[in-house]
């Protein structure tokens, strides 16, 4: 996975929940369809606006609600390269990490405006706002989280670390 992600900011508010990110009526459809409808509850044009690598920026508590991993999957498939928010709901945070979608907690997320050009350095947690000429620091990722993200998600992490023939004892 690239440790530097460059893209345009798409800015949303607080408490963007999983029903807004990934409306329940589409859950029976394919992941491609879910991606086309990503964020539809808050922005019907989201999927059309996002270019690969763009960065979703939100306020407090991004992703509360359902355990549906299809929420971060839909965002990733829609092209989102990383998400920056003040903080994330717990299950969404884990799910995003597990599918290899970087999520950064940044207290200064409010300083980023819709359309700003951003560069996110996952290694250092530095977010550079090229448009505004500012930089912000995201909370450092914990060691288990960084290990999983560096591998590209939980599945490659498990495969890489333990091989395909996983033995429970190896995990202890």
């Amino acid at each position: 996975m690239n440790s530097i992600i460059k893209g345009k900011a798409h800015k949303y508010g607080d408490n963007i929940n999983t029903d807004l990110i990934n409306p329940p009526q589409y859950l029976e459809k394919s992941l491609e369809v879910l991606a086309q409808h990503a964020m539809e509850g808050v922005d019907e044009h989201f999927a059309a606006k996002v270019a690969p690598g763009d960065i979703l920026v939100a306020g407090a508590n991004f992703g509360p609600g359902s355990s549906r991993e299809t929420a971060p999957i839909a965002l990733k498939m829609a092209g989102v390269g990383a998400i920056v928010a003040k903080f994330f709901a717990r299950i969404f945070y884990r799910n995003a990490i597990n599918i290899g979608l970087p999520v950064l907690e940044c207290a200064e997320a409010d300083r980023i405006a819709d359309g700003d050009a951003l560069e996110v350095d996952l290694g250092t947690g530095t977010i550079t706002n090229v448009t505004k000429g500012e930089s912000y620091t995201a909370a450092p990722l914990s060691a288990p989280v960084m290990d999983i993200l560096s591998a590209g998600g939980l599945i490659p992490f498990l495969e890489k670390k333990y091989g395909v023939d996983i033995d429970k004892k190896d995990l202890a």
Partner: peptide, 20 residues
């Protein structure tokens, strides 16, 4: 506690999960 599907895959094959 609720978990995602990939996380559940890890649990199914290993019986374990990392928790903070």
């Amino acid at each position: 506690t609720g978990i995602g599907s990939t996380e559940m895959l890890g649990v199914l094959v290993s019986g374990q999960i990392w928790l903070r």
